[in-house]
Design a protein around this nucleic acid. Structure first.
Lengths: 341, 341
DNA sequence: TTGTAAGCGTTATCAA
DNA sequence: TTGATAACGCTTACAA
């Protein structure tokens, strides 16, 4: 039942080669004659050999593991990012050890310690919790995604450009007043660029505008009641004006849209809406919603490029660490649907 | 720079103990005097020791790894399930190696081989691709979720009950005709129970009903046009009747709802809708949609219970494998929102 | 092209 | 309560 595991020693005995030769068969087959490769291949199936990568890691230090610290998976942005990262396995061969971080510094540190104990070769961090300076101190290749990145490599969406694109689209649809609703986020956060993009564009073109910074709450119900109030306020404040709404994300855009549709049976001409993220809700909404899309597959790809380059460098005889962290910026994509024009 | 790693040997030398004692400090500290525990603890911080679990796995065979094969992460059901499974780390301590399977037998087999090479202690399979008989043959603890499970342990939602609940709710809202739209799925699939639940309930209460089995397509656009056609057909066929629609999932329910709202500016009284899954779209829809919710946290929990019991059994001196695979059934939860009554 | 022998950093067995 | 020593299964100089 519990058949003992077949090892190189068994194969060596069976084929009358040494363990070294068996090892070579796997790592440098060209150094064997074709005939001997054949013999070993046969022995492998005859004995039903299963490789043991744990022993291999211990011997050569290369785990082919990459750790991932991700805030959660219920937000589509994160789960889709993980999806794309996992799919790079076919290209790079790295296996992923995933921790869903709960935004608690000590817990996430514990996760990283655990990952390190498994000899991970690199780390991908989507969680904003631990400062990049601390991450850099672990002294292994790290890439951050959409987070503070002063001391580590990173891949980030050009949020500023996204803000500009969204604002410009509203401008083109002849709105009388442009309104951006966002949370009161820190200026260090990449997403702050959306606010800057909005403001800069409005100022440059002298567009009447209003910036509403408010916490809309964490649940659907809270979003709903916050935005319901804001909606009333805006209708009172700008009764005759065409309002261009740039929402901080598609979820909020959808709540606003639903409020309007339920009130008027359709999206009134006096309202234009654009969201951010191109999450599923934007296309599944009652009126497919314009949005600024993040190029998640590209971000995942760039992340692995950056990470694998660093990991490969480390395997050289004389590794040259990066002098400066590399920061890649990925352009967002404007997606025009039916809530603008 | 590349500081050599601190090992038990270093600590042993530093403390004048043997490596064995250091090992005991970690695995069986009570067997040391408090004083000596103290000494070792100090040495650990003095030398900045980092544990190496790879060496540990090689020596004792316990990887604390669990492999996961999941079809994808863009469907909310799967990403939320992964989320919940990952969160069991705090309770069970198992680390997860995740592969997003692409529903290709050979590829998924390759994934499993790779997982086995890392000495995983157990496997969770959400993908329906590989038959349970084959999975069972790997001879490691396996739990399947919502899939064919003849030869393996499994956790599955009571789809039949879900179908009954949905149908009963429509019945209570005084519909004249009940209609269930689903794909032409195999009778082996757990989800087939939804169809059975619908039919049985209708027959039992002599409710006028219609079962529509049709492929609605894989994209949002395809869903939209398929359902648009079905909508027209139904309006022509049952012009004066109150129609109770039981949709196979929330995505389809939402498409139907949106078609109606865009046509009539609201959900007409002649239409009642219930979906399945309690995915985010059901609560975010323009009219929050009734649905049958799967208890994802509970399913994840039961899965780990089942798996960890098997894994623990294996670590005993004389393991007693399960005589029969255990199949757990989790009840669905009816969620009443605004599209019924 | 192939082999020998010494690691890799733990844990397990047996003895003291 | 502690220690010597042999695994665990593979890789890697160094030799031949």
């Amino acid at each position: 039942m519990k058949s003992k595991k077949v090892t190189f020693a068994d194969i060596a005995e069976y084929t009358h080669f040494s363990k070294t030769t068996i090892s070579r068969y796997f790592n440098n087959p060209d150094s064997l004659t074709l005939e001997n490769q054949q013999k070993i291949a046969e022995a492998l199936t005859a004995l039903n050999y299963k490789e043991n990568k744990v022993a291999r890691i211990l011997a050569n230090g290369k785990s082919e593991f990459v750790g991932i610290i991700i805030p959660n998976l219920y937000m589509h942005y994160y789960s889709e990012m993980l999806n794309q990262i996992l799919s790079t396995y076919e290209t790079y061969g790295y296996k992923f050890l995933v921790f869903a971080g709960n935004e608690n510094k000590d817990v996430e540190r514990k996760y990283i310690e655990e990952l390190l104990a498994y000899n991970i070769e690199g780390l991908i961090v989507l969680s904003p919790t631990i400062p990049s300076k601390e991450l850099a101190a672990y002294n292994i290749p790290v890439v951050g995604i959409e987070r503070e990145d002063q001391y580590i490599c990173s891949v980030t969406t050009d949020n500023y450009m996204g803000g500009v694109q969204a604002t410009s689209l509203l401008q083109k649809s002849n709105c009388d007043i442009l309104i951006h609703i966002n949370a009161n986020i820190s200026k260090d956060t990449p997403a702050y660029g959306r606010i800057q993009g909005f403001l800069t564009t409005c100022q440059e073109y002298h567009l009447p505008h209003e910036l509403i910074l408010a916490e809309l709450g964490n649940t659907f119900e809270e979003n709903h009641s916050s935005l319901s109030q804001i909606l009333e306020t805006l209708e009172a404040k700008y009764p005759a004006k065409k309002k261009g709404m740039f929402m901080s994300n598609d979820t909020h855009a959808n709540v606003l849209l639903n409020l309007l549709v339920r009130k008027y049976g359709k999206l009134p001409d006096a309202w234009q809406i654009i969201g951010f993220d191109n999450s599923p809700i934007s296309s599944e909404a009652v009126i497919p919603t314009s949005t600024v899309g993040q190029q998640i597959p590209l971000i995942a790809w760039e992340t692995m490029e950056l990470l694998s380059a660093q990991m490969a460098e480390r395997k050289k005889r004389k590794p040259t660490p990066l002098a400066e962290p590399i920061h890649k910026i990925v352009a967002p994509v404007l997606i025009r649907r039916e809530t603008t024009r």
